[in-house]
């Protein structure tokens, strides 16, 4: 039983991270119907920038408390990523807004490659370690271990998601976003500045990516210029699982994917009598994803896609 609870905790922490990154995919998709492939890379840049700042402060004479140093890193990473997201949209996606659907997908892949290789040139090819600034107090619940950082990750993700949901549902900007998602033309007629709304979406998504990036590197203790790829892929899968374009869906999809992966890796061996082991963890995750989509073709919370008529 304690093992099961531990696996659940493992999955929830992993899932919270997926969910936070998935939000960036889902917001952009909801409005532009574009898979922003470069979003994983923005997350990576967030982690790298924060680590550079943290490294600089830690290396200087300043003797600040660890959490404050991390906070400083986050506070620099957020505007850096926002600027990056804003630029990516302006340079790579805006000129293609009226192009066939797949054209911006290719530029997104191109941007991804450029960001990865730029990060490689700037921060080097090595794995960068996250200095041990965050105390790792461990608590025991029913025989399972959970650290402060893990609790913090779950709480922060939930808070951010709730905030985002409120923003989209209640604020003027949120209304403009929903209107743009419905129809750019009509929204424009109603006085919505579509370009500005799309820019805002990228800004918010990139800020979330920065937070997620720092969280990932703090939790796992490392950052690397290639880290965005796998993270982005998993987060995108999570967004689709939940129903892409839907904020609550991204949260649900992320948490579910995290738990599925943890339970898959933990129990697949016992379930199949040792025939399949934890190396089939991703097979298991994708299998669940495919199964869900076969029965609910637009994800768990996604709106029914109306057939074109």
């Amino acid at each position: 039983m304690d093992i099961f609870i531990q696996q659940l905790i493992n999955g929830l922490v992993l899932g919270s991270i997926y969910a936070l990154v998935a939000l960036g995919y889902t917001m952009v998709y909801g409005i532009l119907e574009l898979i922003n492939f470069a979003h994983g890379e923005v997350t990576m840049i967030g982690a790298m920038v924060a680590l550079a700042v943290i490294g600089a402060i830690a290396g200087s004479a300043l003797d600040l408390p660890g959490l404050l140093v991390v906070l400083a890193g986050v506070l620099v990473a957020i505007p850096a990523c926002m600027l990056l997201g804003f630029t990516i949209e302006k340079v790579a996606y805006r000129p293609l807004r009226r192009a066939p659907r797949l054209a911006p997908l290719i530029t997104a892949i191109g941007v991804s490659i450029v960001l990865q290789n730029s990060a490689m040139l700037i921060w080097g090819r090595q794995y960068v370690s996250f200095p041990p600034l965050i105390p790792q107090n461990s608590h025991e619940i029913l025989g399972a271990h959970i650290t402060d950082l893990q609790i913090f990750i779950i709480l922060l993700s939930t808070l951010i998601m709730a905030g985002l949901w409120l923003l989209v549902q209640q604020s003027t900007l949120g209304r403009a976003m929903r209107a743009t998602a419905q129809s750019k033309e009509v929204a424009a007629l109603m006085g919505v500045n579509v370009d500005r709304v799309i820019s805002a979406t990228f800004l918010i998504g990139s800020a979330l990516a920065a937070i997620a990036g720092v969280m990932v590197s703090a939790y796992y203790g490392l950052a690397h210029y290639y880290m965005g790829f796998m993270l982005g892929l998993k987060a995108f899968s999570a967004a689709v699982l939940g129903g892409i374009g839907n904020i609550a869906g991204a949260m649900l999809g992320g948490l579910l994917l995290g738990v599925i992966e943890a339970l898959g890796a933990g129990y697949i061996g016992d379930l199949t009598g040792g025939f399949l082991g934890s190396h089939y963890q991703d097979v298991f995750a994708f299998f669940v994803l495919i199964l869900v989509l076969v029965f609910r073709p637009s994800g768990l919370l996604g709106e029914r896609v109306a057939s074109r008529a």
Binding site: Q6, Q7, Y220, F229
Partner: peptide, 20 residues
Amino acid sequence: REYTHDRATDFTAILTSIKG
């Protein structure tokens, strides 16, 4: 006998299972 992959960062699931 557990497995991961060369881009993984999260091993909690297999480690928990090993712990058992």
